[in-house]
Simulated assay, not measured.
Amino acid sequence: MKYPVEELREAYLKLIDEEHVESVYQTFIEQNTRLVPREFVQNHSISNKIVLRKPSLGADYKSDFAFLSKSSSNWNAVHIEIEKPWMKYFKGSSQKLSTPFQNAIDQINDWRAWFQSTANAEAFRNIVRPLLNPEGMTNNPINHKFVLVYGRRAEYIGNPQRVNKMASLKTHDFTVMSFDSLAESLDSKPELSLGIRKNDGIELYRDEVLDPFMYGSMEPTLFSISEKLRDLMINDPRENYRRIVDGKDLNALHYFGQNARVRSEESTVVEQADDEEDA
């Protein structure tokens, strides 16, 4: 269910007060993409207003979300791991990190190590290639950043030693966010389209045009959209969003709608594997 901003904040804060398996929080964020973290976003915002759901990092790893954000010369690829709001940062009343929290950090370190391989980094570039536009930036450097969403900040706020310990974990490419923090400044966070990477491109799960400008550079044959979105684009009356194709000046929305693949209405965002992870 999607909510207006204030209702979203209330529903989300109520949800994270409850103990659920991870997939419950994942699904809620997927359905309400204002909650997706915006850490490491560069000055051109999130590429194509698309956040990928569970993109694979080789055969061994899979993040919960990932998005791209560009500057004038490079990309940030932001990889997000969602844990559970009721998990603890610290062991009892001590300043020592809990084993589950340390394990979550180690998982991020495994991802970071995976990207040290040039072959792996290029494999990931191929996964996100449909989002690396305009075309002139396809081969620009990609800097990998990591976000861990974990726990509640009430566990450390008010304790200077714990606050300092949490601050010490943050680096130029890694940050920890509490579940509480996702509810902040929701009215300033634009909604996103949820994307799932398939062998033949990216399936988009949103039936509205969020940013008409982006369709001037996205290659439509690399995307699958719903029949409803296709019809909206083809019939969109706006003429001020353009793209050049084979020397012709075309309506960008019409062109994208006419040339993107239509995904099966049976396609679903939910994957059975999620429940196995939470078992």
Rank of each mutant, 00 (worst) to 15 (best):
P160T: 07
K145M: 12
H172A: 14
K189G: 12
S185Q: 15
D200E: 14
N143M: 12
E191G: 14
A183Q: 06
R162D: 01
S188F: 15
L169T: 01
F146M: 08
V149E: 04
G151P: 01
A183F: 02
L194A: 01
K198G: 05
R162C: 06
G195N: 01
S178C: 12
R197K: 12
T175S: 01
N133M: 14
N140Y: 15
L182W: 06
L131N: 02
R153P: 00
N139F: 07
H144R: 00
I157C: 00
S178P: 10
L194S: 00
I196K: 07
F213A: 15
E184T: 07
V147M: 06
E184R: 10
D173N: 09
F146A: 04
M177C: 12
E155Y: 08
P141W: 07
V147E: 05
M214S: 03
L148V: 07
P134K: 13
S193E: 08
N199C: 04
G195Y: 05
L210V: 15
I196F: 04
F146L: 05
R206G: 00
Y215N: 06
K198F: 08
L169E: 10
R152T: 01
S193W: 06
K198Y: 12
S217V: 14
N159P: 04
N199H: 10
S168V: 12
E203A: 05
A167V: 03
L186S: 08
L131I: 03
L169D: 06
P134I: 01
M218T: 03
I196N: 05
F179C: 00
A154D: 13
S178W: 02
L194G: 03
G216M: 05
A154H: 14
Q161C: 09
V149N: 03
P141A: 00
P190Q: 15
M177W: 03
L204G: 00
S217P: 09
V147N: 09
